[in-house]
Amino acid sequence: MDTTTEFRKFSANLDSLEPIREFLTGLANKLGLDKSRTYKLCLAVDEIATNIINYGYLKSGITDGMIDVIVDSNKELLTVTLEDTAIPFNPFENKLPGEVDLALPLEERPIGGLGIMLAKENVDEFRYEFENGKNRNIFCVNLK
């Protein structure tokens, strides 16, 4: 099946969050993804890009890091991959807010873990790999 690949590099700073969302929204629109699922994809990617910038590169002491955004699509699947060269940062090893936390009144809630939960919940598949010194966060959306 024919797969199209789009690729763009972004500076690993918070000012890149909006351009990343705009890049993804443009491609998703071309593929005919509806508004709701496009928003969800942007939200999932935004949360992980934020972690890469705020934790990964910051902990690595790298100030001029980059995030590569690779978008592969065919008729069935849209795949967004974020690649970075910060220290290994596996989002699945971070504690997610449990059911109990989410049921607590807002005033009693610990803050944290929400971003990773949103990344997992807003795409059809979210996975993480570390390969050749690169973190790869992969988001899949079914187009069928």
Binding site: R21, L43, E47, L114, G115, L118
Partner: peptide
């Protein structure tokens, strides 16, 4: 658009103001 960073501000506001202070959201998007 609202990411978890925005949610954290809402949680912060609720925690600081306490449960007696009602928080209204007017016309949020779907």
């Amino acid at each position: 658009f609202m990411a978890s960073a925005g949610l954290r501000v809402i949680i912060f506001a609720k925690q600081k103001l306490g449960s007696a202070v009602k928080l209204f959201l007017v016309k949020p998007q779907e």
